[in-house]
Structure formats: structure tokens, C-alpha cells
Design a protein around this nucleic acid. Sequence first.
DNA 1: CATGAATGAGGTTTCATTCAT
DNA 2: CATGAATGAAACCTCATTCAT
Lengths: 238, 238, 238, 238
Amino acid sequence: MTNEAAKASRKSAPKPAHRRARARASTDLAPSRSKLPSNRAERAAERRGAIIEAAMDEFIARGFAATRLDDIAKRAGVAKGTIYLHFKDKESMFEELIRTAIVPLVIRLSSTPPAPGASVRDMVEAFARTFIAEVASTRRGDLIRLIVAEGPRFPAVADFYYREVITRGLAGMRAMIELGIARGEIKQKKLAQFPQILVAPALIAVIWQSLFSKHAPLDAIAMFRVHLDLIFGERRTA
Amino acid sequence: MTNEAAKASRKSAPKPAHRRARARASTDLAPSRSKLPSNRAERAAERRGAIIEAAMDEFIARGFAATRLDDIAKRAGVAKGTIYLHFKDKESMFEELIRTAIVPLVIRLSSTPPAPGASVRDMVEAFARTFIAEVASTRRGDLIRLIVAEGPRFPAVADFYYREVITRGLAGMRAMIELGIARGEIKQKKLAQFPQILVAPALIAVIWQSLFSKHAPLDAIAMFRVHLDLIFGERRTA
Amino acid sequence: MTNEAAKASRKSAPKPAHRRARARASTDLAPSRSKLPSNRAERAAERRGAIIEAAMDEFIARGFAATRLDDIAKRAGVAKGTIYLHFKDKESMFEELIRTAIVPLVIRLSSTPPAPGASVRDMVEAFARTFIAEVASTRRGDLIRLIVAEGPRFPAVADFYYREVITRGLAGMRAMIELGIARGEIKQKKLAQFPQILVAPALIAVIWQSLFSKHAPLDAIAMFRVHLDLIFGERRTA
Amino acid sequence: MTNEAAKASRKSAPKPAHRRARARASTDLAPSRSKLPSNRAERAAERRGAIIEAAMDEFIARGFAATRLDDIAKRAGVAKGTIYLHFKDKESMFEELIRTAIVPLVIRLSSTPPAPGASVRDMVEAFARTFIAEVASTRRGDLIRLIVAEGPRFPAVADFYYREVITRGLAGMRAMIELGIARGEIKQKKLAQFPQILVAPALIAVIWQSLFSKHAPLDAIAMFRVHLDLIFGERRTA
DNA sequence: CATGAATGAGGTTTCATTCAT
DNA sequence: CATGAATGAAACCTCATTCAT
């Protein structure tokens, strides 16, 4: 008997997209003639997007090695050969994919509005809220688990992730911590040496979500607040 | 073209064992007859052990799907068919394997000597030291990453891990925290609701080790101490 | 050591077909577009046919279990994987195959021209002649032996054969016998209860052909005539 | 999906015999010492018998290629290696087996008591009764089907069967027919040229039993009587 | 550009046969 | 003699990749 669960989910997986909504109606004024090439490029980009979307789902669901290009193609609503018009092979598709997906994630997270008169704690908490809402409980969280899972086998992915996410993220956290220390909100000065501690519960939440949410739910935000209490001192009024 | 990295490491992988005989000095007086079954069983157990050992290495290095039974066999120094004398198929080998490996890990960690007159902080720190030394910086850490990676595809594994490690571990942590609160060492009473926070940096260390140790080393113990300072208050004398 | 005989014949087996193209003169006026699907479908049907043909030969020569898909592929002039584009697996290939092959056999036999003023004996004899010429001494006879051989292991095949061949055939024979009785050509009224008796020598001939033709030839038609003499009475003029 | 029926029956197949009843209590007067070697030979013969018995069952149930020595060993209650003490390999086991099983079958059938004042018809009918009772409705019938199935792949088996069964059987039938002709019981003189006709319905019965008994039962004896009526003329009193 | 039929290397699993115990 | 663990050659089947249409 083979993995029943895997088998079961394999069947239910491909939900072909079949050319999703030719979308926004090209508002440019160019004559209809010139629209053709435009449409071409547009369509190509759309297809590429559909492939990436589909591939993400499949890779998250099965991991790199167990994912079949056939399923990606079906789910994306394209032919198998079409994938090779956009990507060199399965491996570089995976790597490009991660890059493509990470960037908006980083943008999304690093663009938390600074909030003028806020305390550092509020800023960190706002950030955590965003992270938990937008990452931990969505497919983006699985993406992080995917990177943890496949990273060692894809140095390029690990490198990229380290460069784009880890260093930036830790730098941002460190800045926050130092600001907190400067403002007197944070007592523990050594925390600046290990900004990882600040985000540790967030990672825990991501992993818990993927693996154990069906065994026991985890209120990630409540957990994070307790964590912040440790760092900033208990809140006077809760 | 397949995974270049995988290909490269694949070659260096199989280090045949061929640790035959061991022929123990058989000084006992038992009749020669009784030696046969003993040796048989012993050899069988040895082989099974070698297979498990080899499989663990391969699965950690490549993940479930990308691991070849051929390589496991080579590394264990047995023929491919021999694997099937000990395990039903690749999948159940993987699951049994995780079980087999988790148990001693749990035992190792849960048997930290209670240390009579120690403070809770000392106890937690001792535990963390053990964990970091025995898990985070060894192959056992990769095992945890493997479970995180494959868990969603192997519900049996996730279930087992949740039951044997997570619930037990969290219960233990919660007990510690409550003791700390009772003794006045820990101020934050809500921490008992989220024992995950206590171990979060340890998990961070495990993952960092697997993915980013070559990008930047992480002094897990120092990090953990800072974390403990947050929980127990900064140490008077460091 | 494996079956020597099988080994010997195994080598001579694969006679690749490579009957590509056929390139039909395409004199039609249809737009070039419509040719594509037509050619595609045609080619696919051709390939499927070649596989079935090859598989039939191999299965007849070695039986189900001992037949290798590799040999079928070689003989059909296709790659191993191509077989799986047409059939789910070896087993369903076998079953489909039997179905595919039985139908024309039934059609061939059931389409014996009624012959207006003929006696029942003449009709039966004509039928027997057809059967012996078109089945007993051709590969179709081996097909029947194959069904006898594998039937118990493939209930679906036995069911199909019973439904499509046995019941129809016996019904036809019974109708003949009853006509013979009505016309006074056949005396033995109980024969209608066992139409099997009518065809028994034909089956004997099929089996003899497969197994003992090299030990001693069997004049199936002469045998059948003697059998008919038993049923209809000896012929006045021979 | 693989052959469900085959899978199902595979599990239920091996019913270990485990040294069936050391049987008859060696009535010889020799001292207990000499019994040992005697027992040895006896035991060896017993084991060989058990293996043959088990092998027959398995080969009949699955055919040569699909039968596993493992199952034969289990069913016979011996170790796999033991089979190789009695037979060179799977193939020669199969051939020896057929020989071993055919001989008693021939003896059983050729030893029908001559019945002093009986008519030829009575003799033939008695023979048919025996055949149908002892062969067609027992495992021996399946043995014949097995020979039909595997014969082309085992020339040695086909040769042996032709020599030991077919020629003898046909010779016997021919003698009967000639006696019937001489006594005026049989009109059709040409029947002596094709004694196969005499036994054809018996073979039909054997095959029907194996393949279609579950679709529709066949009263082999009644059928045979109708067949005899064709040959000897309808019976005056039924 | 897009397709999807075709390929064939490679992976898992089975099983006849051997041989140390 | 008997055992059954071990072997490793095949067998079935999958799936990344190519390429004619």
C-alpha cells in the first residue's frame, strides 16, 4: 500500500484554471493592430503567471521531487510543453518560482506603514499581526515551510532566501530593537544581538499551522502578545 | 537535467558499511546449538540497524521522494532486496524509521537529571544546553527538519510526532513554567499558556543550522540565554 | 535457470514493425488544418493497433505472466512508455486485447451467408469449414487456447467470453439443431439440450493444433464430417 | 489496479500442511535402530509428496509463471530451500510434477474393470462416468487445463502427455470402437479413424468446469449420454 | 507559439536461487 | 538434511524532456 493520503490528494489536486479572466481591458489607445502583439505579451505573462501559481500549489502540496509537471500543466490549464517555453527545466522553475513568490512577500511585510507616533511595541505588534494574518495562516506560510524543506537540496534557494529575507528581516528587527532600547521600551540590551528571538514565535506559528493545526489550534496572535510582554514588559491594561 | 546539487552530493553518498561478523568472543558455556539463533537474531538486528542508519542519512540528505532505495542499500552494505526483508516498502520504512529515531531522542531529552537544589532557570538552561548539543548541532536536528518537511505528506508521521514529542514536550515545559511561576522566578503568568515560546529559539537554532550555518554561524546557546533572560529576568552575574 | 524453451523463443520474438507514415495520398480538398487531427488520430490508432497485434503474439506465445512489456514494445516498434498511453497497465491491456480480438472473430463466424436452399447439414458443415479454416489453423485458435489458459485468473475475460461467444454460439447452434429436428434431418431430439456436442470436435481441433500438431497432424475437416455423419446420418454419396 | 481476483486468492492460498500425519505405523519388525533410516527415507518421500501436492495446487491456481516457490513451500510446510533438495529448479519441478500426477490418472482410467458380459456402449459409458467423476469435477480436470495452458511453453510436458495419455487413450478408444463396429453396435465405420470424437464431450466438460461452471452448470453425464446415443443409436429404454 | 504524443532512463518491487548455519 | 536470510537480475511502471505538427 502506498501513501493513501498522498494518493487521495493527488486526485483532487489539479483544478485547471483554463485561462483565467482575460483581465483588465488594455486601456491603451493604440489601434487594434498593435493590440495583437500587446495581447501576445499579455497572454504570455498570464500563462507564465498561471504556471507559477499552479506550480506553487503543487510544490507546496507534494514537495519538489514528488511534484509532476503534468499536474502543474493541468492545473495551470496549459500543455506540458508550454512549461518549457517559460522555464528551462523543473529545477530552475522551482528556483525562479521561489524568487517570484518571495519578493512580494518581502514587499508586503516591509511596507508596514511606519505609524508616526506609535510605540516600538505597537510597531512590532502591528508587524506581527500582518505577518500572522498574511503569512502564517495562508499559503505563504507553506511556502516558508517549503523553503525549509527543500533549502538544503537547493543551495540557490537557500542563498536567495538568506539574502533577500533573512538578512533584511533581521536587519529590520534589529533596528526596531535598537529603537526600543534607545526609547527605554526594551530593557534587555543583548536582544539586539539575536533579533531571531523576536520572530521565533512567528516561525513556530507557521510550522504549527502546517503540521499540527488539525491536532490542536494555536492562537498565534495571543502567543505573540505574550512573547511581546516578555520583551517589553507586561502591558498595563489588556 | 536534474538537480545539480543533488547529483553532486549523490556521488559522495554511499559509503558501504560491510561491517560483517563482529564474531563476539563467545566465552559462554551454552551449547553450540543455542548460539545459532542468537547469532542469527543478532545479525538480523545489526542489518536492520544498518539499513535504518543508512536510510536516515539518505532521507535527511534528499527527502523522501528523491531518496533511492539503491543508495540506501549501498550505504547500508546490503542488497536491494534485503531491505524488503525488514520493511514492507519505502513508505513504511520511512515511517518506522522516524518512530525508531524519535524514541531515543525523547528519552535522551526527558532524562535530564532533575538536579536537586537547582533553580527553574538552571533546569531549563541545562535542558536547552542538552538539546542544542545533542540535537541542534547533530543529525538529530536534521531529523526534525525532515519531519517538518515531510509531515504534511505523511500524516502518520505528523500524528506520531505530535503525540510522542509535541504533547510530551509541551507538557514538560508547562510544568517547568508553572514551577517557575510558583517559585516566583517567572513573572509572566500567561507564559504557561504558550510553552511553545520557551522552546521557540531552540527550533530556530535547528532550522538555522540546517539552512544558514554556512552563511552565518549562530551561537545557539548564547541566543537561548538571552531568551531566558527575557523570561526569568536578566542574570545578576554573568 | 529459467525456462529454456522460453529463452530460446524469446530471442526470435521481437520483430520490430516500424511501419511509419503510410502517408495516404491526401487527395482531398479539406484545408490543411483538418489534416492534422486526422493524421494524429490515425497515427494513434495505428500505434494502438500495432501494440495490440504485438501483445497478442507475445501473450499467445508465453501466457500473461511470462510476457514482458518490453518485448511487446519492441515487437510493436514503440517505446515502453508508449504502451501506457494506450493502456492503464499490463492487466487491462490483456483484457482489452481479448475483447478487441474476440469481436471480429464473432463477427466473422456469425456472418456465414445463410445459403438459401441448403440443408441444415450443409449449413453446419459450411460453418465448420469456416471455423476450421479461419480459427483452428490460425492464430485465432491460439487465442482461444489463451482464454482457456488464463480465464480462471481473469474472471473479466471469462465473463466476457462467456457472454459474447459461448452464449451466442450455443444459441446459434441450438437454433440449427432445432431446425434440423423440425426438418427431420436430425433424429436425436435431445441434442438440442447440448449444442456443445455439435462444436466439441472443433474445440478438439483447436487444442490439437496448438499442442500436438507436430506429433501427429489432424485432418479437422474429415473429423468433423464423421462427426456430422453421427448426427445427420451417413451421407449417401461421399 | 492489479488483478483483484488473483490478489484475493493469493492470500487465501497457502494452507500449510505441516507434516501431515506420519501415517501408517511402520509395521515391520526391524529393531528401533533400523527405523531411523527408514524414517528418514519415509520422511523424505513424504516431504517430496507434500511439495508436489502443494505445487500442483499453486500451479493450477496461477499457472507456471505466476506461481511463487515461496507459496509452494508455505503450503507444503517446508522451507524454500528444501524444494531444491528435491528438484533442480522451478521448471523441472513443474515437469516432474506433471509426470508424477499423470501416471496415476492414466492408471486410474485404464484400470476400469472390463465387465464381462457388458455391451461396448456400457463399457464406454462406464469409462465416461469414471472420467467425469474422477477427473472433470476434480482437481485433475484443472491439471488437464494446466497442460493445455502450459503445453506450448513446455515441449517436454506436451511430448510426455502426448506419449503417455493421448496415444494410449486414443488407442484404447479405437479398440473400443472397433469392437463396437465388429459387434454391430456402431454403424459409423469411419469413427475408428477419429477416436477423438468419442472423448470430445469429456474434454468440453473439463474446460467448461474450469471456466464457466459459475456461469451455468453443465450436466456432463447427461451430455455424454446424448453423445453416446449419436454413436450407438438412441437407447430403447431410458 | 502551443500542443501533447512519444521517448527511455530510472525507480520500486518481486522472486528464483544460493549457501552459511 | 533442512533452513530461511540474502542476493541481484529483471519486471512493471512513471515522468521529465523533446519535437513534429
